[in-house]
Amino acid sequence: MLFDSFMIKFLTFLFIFNSAAYAQNHSVDLTHPFYLLESGQFTLDLKGGLFMEEFEYEKAKVVQDLFEYKHEFYKLGTIVGLPQNRQFGIEFSFNANGDLDKKYAPALNLQRQDIPYKGFHAYDFFIQQHFEVENSKNKLAFELRTKGSPLKGKETNNTYSSKDFSFSLLYSHLHSDDWRLYGTVHTGIIGKKKVYKYDGEIEVTSPYSLFGSLIGIQRLMGKFWLDLNGIFYLTTDYNSVSPSYTRLTDKGFIIGGKLTAGHYLTPNSIITLTHQRQGANFNVITEDTSQETEFEIETQISQLGVTWLF
């Protein structure tokens, strides 16, 4: 029911905007994971989909608490080409029909909660510098990125209350015109997060850092392409403190993958369908190691997006 409603809204937007796209051929390869726009060009990106995230804390094979976030999301973004092989992009995302389901083990004596949420989720801003390389089949770029929200973090809005900063080295190689290999080396810091909970408590998550890599491969088939990538990051301490519970960890890792199918609608517009899964595991340091303890965050995103180039 939720998904049907989302699809109707999204397809309506798609029909209206695609009918305004014009057929002039530009030199930008929109299949590229980090395409470079010429100065004065810009894109308009519309995305929508379903998001699910699960925070699970398990001790001695008994789930102590399980928080599930589910919502529809909509994103509106643009990338603008600048002189000297630079460009910047900004994207705004919104949550709709969100539901936070909080379950606890009986021994904790805490009541199950079902909290609806919606509203502005986050801004995501980046700037890229592309470098000249000798081989035209290779690309190299540097990216600075920040993500956050100006709103106060609450369980009733699920806004992205931390301020993240990251930088990445982006590279790609086109092999035999049909295959593209690409990747990033990524460093980031996830900022301090403060959430005002529904029951009045405040949960504070300390900043933590991550370092790792993304590796991807694309199969290019004319107007159609497939893209598969995987990520692996190591993280520092993820510590979360509230009056009800404390989670202290000393390290973690994130592993995930994304599959994308894309198609050119016109020479200057593309549609993409993406499915992404990611899991993060953190090493808890406040439990006896004789009891198996697992603290993990699993994320699943399904997304439909359209990009127009102007």
Binding site: S209, L234, N281, F282, V284, T293, E294
Partner: peptide, 19 residues
């Protein structure tokens, strides 16, 4: 800067946290 100054018990990570 985000590392907490914790030196704890000898060589004990939970299996699930070891990639």
């Amino acid at each position: 800067v985000t590392r907490k100054d914790i030196t704890y018990r000898k060589s004990e990570s939970f299996r699930q946290a070891q990639p």
